[in-house]
Design a binder for these strands. Structure first.
Lengths: 218, 218
DNA sequence: TCACAAATTTAGATTAATCTAAAAATTTGT
DNA sequence: ACAAATTTTTAGATTAATCTAAATTTGTGA
């Protein structure tokens, strides 16, 4: 049974592996875990001992098969709880993260299974991220970033890359809601901002924002 | 913010205070926490420092006002989660304890408030124990033990003193369900067992069982 | 009341997770 | 290719929660 801290490292390594080809290096992991590189090294040794990561000194770490299973289980629980909080307990999508961080560590096979059933086996969390099933399988996303869409192209707003409260609140303010159709009217070469059309209205979106909005093209 | 371990001690002290006039003594607390008396002493010093308990060497401990508030908050969360597990997630009353032990430590004012609302502000958990409200108030129980009922008396089965899985499963097997009316037909002086009537049927109940069944008399 | 048993505390060690400071390995730029 | 910069690891310390063994305090029964 992994400790709380171990579980959090596994999750962080999983996310870093998806972002960087070479896996999770010490400094990146330290930043993500809000800790010091020396602490990360200690933990990587421990996780390596437990066969949860493949780690060679100075080479960074990747999850082992076992580690990846564990990580996916935690992510599954995190996202199921997020759905629960939003759909049943009136939380908004920018409030769920910290609570789900706590709930994801509760250990009970039956709890996860029944929660999934109770929620109707959701496929996506409130931020559009896919929810792994009990075997750890999930939809690989055929989505692209709004910033990558050509002028004239369109698609459905299907997720966010940055799920910080401030970005989510910005989207709320702009009334940019999951599931809406967005069309790119014009790309501005100068600052890479874009003009979009949504609900028949025109909006101006910064490069930074566009780079954190996932679009599903048909 | 209290640590996980501190929260568990507060809860244990609360339960011991309700059982023993003098409060929680070191050995009793050690047994309840499945730890050694020396560890308990260390923790009591810490909790005393934090003004969560009143503790004098060799004199046992009682919760301070602040400690009692904390304890009641944890118990409130525990019992709300038990209701959730039974009513929404198909858990049986003998399965909920360990999971609720984990869920009770999740920190989120909003979570507790919304869970309570979602469940319809339940007054009792699945074992008939009262659920404190947000201010820590709860029904003091006017209930007595089945073992204390006179011959010919009757009442409603409204709770269990022992909520171990084995006792709860025994009750399930006997079809003794919360809310049913029970009448005492006969008390056997020899072994203090009793004969009861329930659903029109007669059952024989051991002294031990009768001593763990709460009855609400009208 | 006082000796002994029981309960409790103290002293000193251990483990997990963290830290700082220093050392070592790797990578990079010229 | 090699010196400097960056990254990573090691060494040694700290904190929280626990342990064992020994010492102390309390309380009880003769």
């Amino acid at each position: 049974m992994a400790t709380l801290s171990e579980e959090n490292y596994l999750k962080a390594i999983f996310h870093l592996e998806n972002k960087f080809e070479q896996g999770a290096n010490t400094n990146a992991l330290a930043e993500k875990m809000e800790t010091k590189p020396s602490s990360v090294t200690d933990m990587l040794k421990k996780l390596s001992q437990k066969k949860l990561v493949d780690y060679k000194k100075y080479q960074g770490a990747k999850l082992s098969k076992k580690g990846k299973e564990k990580a996916l289980e935690i992510i599954r629980k995190h996202r199921l709880w997020e759905v629960f909080l939003v759909e049943k307990l009136n939380f908004s999508w920018d409030e769920v993260h910290d609570v789900a961080e706590q709930l994801e560590h509760v250990q009970s096979r039956k709890l996860t299974l029944e929660l999934d059933r109770f929620l109707g086996h959701p496929k996506r969390d409130p931020h559009g991220d896919p929810i792994p099933d009990a075997e750890g399988n999930f939809d690989f996303n055929d989505r692209m970033l709004l910033s990558e869409l050509e002028e004239g192209a369109n698609g459905i707003f299907s997720g966010v890359k940055d799920s910080s409260a401030s970005f989510l609140q910005y989207l709320d303010k702009q009334e940019i809601t999951l599931g809406k159709e967005i069309a790119v009217l014009e790309r501005e070469n100068f600052d890479h901002s874009i003009r979009i059309k949504m609900d028949g209205k025109t909006k101006h979106i910064s490069a930074l924002a566009a780079n954190n909005i996932f679009i599903k093209t048909s």
